[in-house]
Amino acid sequence: MKTPALIVSGVLALLLAGCATRRVDESPVAAGQTTFATKEEVAAADEHDDWDTVAVVEVHDPIEPVNRGIFWFNHQLYTYVAKPFSKAYKSIFPKWVRHGIGNAYENIKYPIRVVNHTLQGRLDRTATETGRFLVNTTAGVGGVMKPADKIPALADVPKADTGQTFSKWGAPHGPYLVFPVLGPTTTRDLVGTAGDTALNPVAWVGLLFGGAAWTTAISAPSGAHGVPDQMDRYDMATKDALDPYISARSGYIQYREAASER
């Protein structure tokens, strides 16, 4: 287990430039990265200068102007297409239907979680995840309901994905990227998404039946279901921001850091 982990993390480390969350009293950052406070600044602080209690997110964003352009495009898309869609979707489908659809798609993605728990060496979580899947698939009618949430031993298992696994293996985030429609990611998470897609049974349907149209048709309800939640999160991250781009970037990196640490 260790050998492939080391090889993959080594290759990723070579491919990706660094990006991490640091406390401000650590070493100054390299040129070209967004800087916050240097060691000297912290050292000169008076008794109330407790800025180091805040973990500052340091992001490698080498194509920031391009990313900002795509962020602006996405903002227009979210405002004029995704939000009206989200509103209509919510008004057509009652809450219990929406949750049922979301639960079922979440349940189908079991291989992504179970493989990554295993690759992260968390066999206890592999077992719990498997228990959840069995209970939700059988008693929960194909995962539409989540009876496992009522069983304390199965109720709480953190999600796992391939990007998190790379993080556990020591791979840095790499450059921050914003994609049209899809939004923010990092090079590490982009490679991770490819791994997640390969592990997603919804994607296998396209391979089995010989066409991307099948995959699109089957994953469309999942995508539609996710839009309202994503719009809520987007609003939360950007609505009262001084700079929505930086707020979304900081939020994304912090979120992924926290997910990897769980």
């Binding site: 805040v54 500052v56 912090q254």
Partner: peptide, 8 residues
């Protein structure tokens, strides 16, 4: 921390 990134 989120606002710190913006204020900075």
């Amino acid at each position: 921390a989120n606002y710190r990134a913006q204020f900075d």
